[in-house]
């Protein structure tokens, strides 16, 4: 008497039908993408940022190191932007599949469930804006010509600290506050996400193991949060003019020493929006070192 498992419902072919049918794999990929690459990238990102505490030069060095990678836009899109978008969009779908009932069931883990979704929404909005604000998402000239005057796409990799400090100061306390909330939301989301992923994947099973993991994730979250906060503090302490002088000097030395290719697009001074360069004709090649 072997009873076959009940068959899955017939698919209507709609998106939600597709999502439901491949529910398991999609949600597991969602969980995975949150850890690697998104979570891992976030750690690198926040730790790199906190190097600003060592002064503009240390930070600039770190940025030079990142920008020495070949095919950076490809890397950015494949390992960062697309996973983030996937994680965010599926995340919204997941969050909308449940209904929080915190009012009647005020348990700690239920609060965390609620907070995971709230911080998810905040992180979504934050990251979208943050990338637009500093990176710009795309580096087509026509696009930059459109967003830069709006105060977006402000980061210059070869003037890292100074362009960052300028961008943060542009609207008084608005941007620092925005980043404060956004970074803390992301950090909570990651730390709590690691904990829930550990349950989802079956790493920590027993209540005591889950409790220990929870402590570990909390410590991790606090440390990562401190890294983020310290970066924000360092930005606020940075004087753009002083920083720029150091950066320009470092740029010059590196170009002269053939350590990097000159690239005015990555500098504050050389960046002229609207100027058409004949070699800029594709999406991802737009930013490649010349």
């Amino acid at each position: 008497m072997n009873v076959p498992p009940p068959s899955a419902p017939s698919q209507s072919g709609s998106l939600s039908g597709f999502l439901k049918k491949h529910d398991f794999i999609i949600r597991r990929l969602h969980s995975l993408s949150g850890l690697v690459p998104v979570g891992a990238y976030m750690c690198v990102h926040l730790v790199t940022n906190s190097s600003l505490n060592g002064g503009p030069a240390v930070f600039q060095n770190a940025v030079f190191a990142i920008h020495s990678l070949p095919f950076l836009p490809v890397i950015e899109w494949t390992f960062i932007f697309l996973p983030i978008l996937f994680h965010a969009i599926v995340g919204v779908w997941i969050a909308r599949s449940g209904q929080s009932n915190l009012r009647n069931y005020r348990f700690t883990s239920n609060k965390r469930y609620w907070a995971q979704r709230m911080t998810g929404y905040i992180a979504f909005a934050f990251i979208f804006t943050h990338v637009l604000h500093l990176h710009g998402w795309f580096h087509w000239d026509w696009w930059l010509g459109f967003v830069e005057p709006l105060g977006m796409a402000q980061f210059r990799p070869y003037n890292a600290a100074s362009s960052l400090a300028e961008a943060m100061k542009s609207l008084g306390f608005v941007w620092p506050l925005f980043y404060l909330v956004g970074v803390l939301a992301c950090v909570f989301h990651l730390a709590n996400g690691i904990w829930t992923a550990g349950i989802t994947w079956g790493v920590w099973v027993s209540p005591s193991a889950q409790k220990r993991a929870s402590v570990a994730c909390s410590i991790f979250g606090v440390l990562l949060g401190l890294a983020g906060l310290s970066s924000l503090a360092a930005v606020s302490r940075t004087d753009p003019a002083t920083a720029k002088a150091i950066e320009d000097q470092m740029y010059k030395v590196r170009v002269d020493g053939h350590m990097i290719q000159p690239n005015e697009h990555k500098r504050s001074d050389g960046h002229h929006t609207g100027s058409s360069d004949p070699s800029h004709n594709g999406t991802v090649s737009a930013n490649e070192p010349k």
């Binding site: 529910d23 398991f24 949600r27 597991r28 997941i94 599949s97 449940g98 009932n101 069931y105 348990f107 883990s109 239920n110 965390r112 469930y113 609620w114 829930t196 349950i199 989802t200 994947w201 079956g202 790493v203 920590w204 099973v205 027993s206 209540p207 889950q210």
Partner: peptide
């Protein structure tokens, strides 16, 4: 996969069944 790890189940279970342990075992 639909589990959202709110862990309310185990908190309200009148028989104190370790449901979240079962869920994590099932996850593994």
């Amino acid at each position: 996969q639909a589990c959202g790890n709110a862990q309310n189940c185990v908190a309200v279970c009148p028989k104190e069944i370790p449901l979240t342990t079962s869920i994590a075992r099932a996850g593994r």
